[in-house]
Amino acid sequence: MKRILNTDPIPNLPTVGIIGGGQLALMLVRAASQLGLHARVIDASPICPARRDAADFCEGNPESPATLDRFAMNLEVVTLENEFLDAALIAGLEAEGQEVLPSSRTMSLVQDKLAQKQTLRNAAVSVVDFEPVNDGTPIQELESLFGLPFVLKKRCHGYDGTGNFTVHRAEEWDAALNKLGGRESGLYAERWCPFERELAVIVTRSKKGEHVLYPVVETRQRNHVCEQVIAPAAVSGSIAEQAAHLALKAIEAVDGVGSFGVEFFLLADGTLLVNEIAPRVHNSGHYTIEACECSQFENHIRAICGLPLGSTKLRQPAAMVNLLGKTTAAGAPRGLAEALAVSGAHVHLYGKHHAKRGRKMGHVTALGSTSDEALATAQCAADFIHFDQPNLI
């Protein structure tokens, strides 16, 4: 494990460890730095986005227990950029006295999507009907329960739609199993949900159980990847109140600490169903950097460090547009100068060295007197930026 120390920590302030070095870690590092905290990041890639801003960077595989142990030396608290590190590895750190937030118990309940759905249902949080897919589960049984179409999903490691297969006809069953790695990879099935819109709420919860909630937002997807976020969502007060209530109830059910994203399906009759929980800062909350008094990133750092939580008040209506790769290319953008000339647009580039189709390369946020005005500004700037220059290596 290679380690690069950039600066010394400020005495008497916690040293925060972050497992994972992508764009979420980059924004967490910046939030920690704003509070004068020392942040140490571990990632297997020497060119990950968080490396250049982290005070202390460890190049190594976090899935190696020995590497993880060395990374965690002299850290007051460790947190995670994503939900893919096995909960058993987190439990190993905890067994040695290291505080990890979210905890191994929380992660074990969330990273397995079937366990997550069972936990939420047991806590009386409304979710889409689901059923485990075991070695002998025939498609006829699922078709009898859900009808066609239904959705076959991986229990673990699904992301941006990559772990899903919509089964429209019985003849697609074998193809669905093969695409998702077979029954042995761990699968479950869900009823097809004809939702009208997708909503999300960021919840930040402290070690003491104190909490703050961010506004309910609408998320708009393309090819299963979030493309736009509208804050606040244009929903009735009763739906917003219900979403906030369910989001908090969901995070309490898994005893979450830190900032979590809770995603919803909104049906045409006003019914809200929790789609899934993300046990980390979330793409639907990037707008909070400019639009809220305290961002989801700063509040996450506050929560895991035992500091008071900040206000989530929305300064103005806001919108966020993701900058997505459209092809395999170099990470350097074209059109940045033109995007920066758009008044009111805030451009965030993650510094990834390579683009590929659907990869999140950055985002643009804007505020406005209305969310439509904010979206028009953010989209105008985003449309200038392209990642299509040939790779040199």
Rank of each mutant, 00 (worst) to 15 (best):
R169I: 02
V133T: 04
W192P: 12
T219E: 03
D174H: 14
R183M: 10
L145R: 12
L177A: 12
F195M: 10
P149R: 14
V201C: 01
R183W: 11
R183A: 05
P149D: 13
C156T: 11
A189P: 07
G147M: 03
V201N: 01
F146K: 02
G158A: 07
L152Y: 11
L177F: 12
L148I: 06
D135H: 14
G136C: 09
S185E: 08
Q140S: 12
N134Q: 12
T219D: 04
G209S: 05
A176K: 05
S126N: 09
F130S: 06
P149L: 08
A176S: 09
L199D: 03
E184W: 08
L213N: 01
V128M: 07
K153Y: 14
A200E: 00
R183Y: 13
C156R: 14
L145P: 04
T137F: 02
E190Y: 09
A175C: 09
R183Q: 08
A200V: 00
N134Y: 07
L213F: 01
S126W: 01
E143C: 08
E190N: 15
K179L: 14
T162E: 10
A200S: 09
R155H: 10
S126Y: 03
L180Y: 08
T162S: 15
V201A: 00
R191K: 15
L148N: 08
S144T: 01
T162C: 09
H168M: 05
F165P: 03
G209V: 08
V167M: 05
E190M: 08
L148Y: 13
H211F: 12
V125Y: 01
T219G: 07
P215C: 02
G136S: 13
H168E: 10
G136A: 14
I202G: 00
V125R: 03
L187V: 02
G158H: 07
P215A: 01
V203N: 00
I202D: 00
V216I: 01
R183G: 04
Y159I: 05
A176N: 06
G147Y: 02
V212C: 02
V212L: 03
R155K: 11
G186S: 09
Y159G: 06
F130G: 07
A200G: 04
D174R: 14
L145H: 02
L152E: 08
E184H: 13
V212G: 05
W173I: 09
G161Q: 08
K208L: 15
Y159C: 04
